[in-house]
Design a protein around this nucleic acid. Sequence first.
DNA 1: GCCAACGTTGGC
DNA 2: GCCAACGTTGGC
Length: 160
Amino acid sequence: MSRATCYWLMKVEPAAYTIDQLERDRTTTWEGVRNYKARNYLRDEIKVGDGVLFYASNADPSGVVGIAQVVRDGYPDPYQFKRGHKYHDPKSTESDPRWYAVDIRLVEKFMRVVSLAELKATRALKNMMVTQRGARLSIQPVTKSEFDAVRQMGHPRATQ
DNA sequence: GCCAACGTTGGC
DNA sequence: GCCAACGTTGGC
């Protein structure tokens, strides 16, 4: 039996990847995460079926732009072994990989950006990690109620 | 193991 | 572009 669905927020800068690209790709590998806390989530906690808030950081405005779903559990990030690649890590070995990735699939692109300012102004989201000062972690756990609230904010017409 | 220096993130 | 926050590195 699998555990209950968990929810996550994953950040990416538009210069690196966008939800429009995910729309075209349908599925993508969430690779290049080089932070140990985020790595632990990828390796140990993020599972197939989990919900993902796709967050565009360093954007105008920054915010959640859609929903994705995990379609492959954590596995060693292939780029850590690619010499010359910007994600190459010479200290990582195939037998003891340091970095992990998951695969995600687009579920829906929001009709509008749910901006960080809006998230911060929403009382129900006052404890959400991304609204806290200095929350730089690129993968963050999200509660179901936070996930549902943000999803509704992205689809104002659909919930009328 | 401490901690200063340095690098990165990311909002503004 | 600035800079606060935070993570990592490396000398000791």
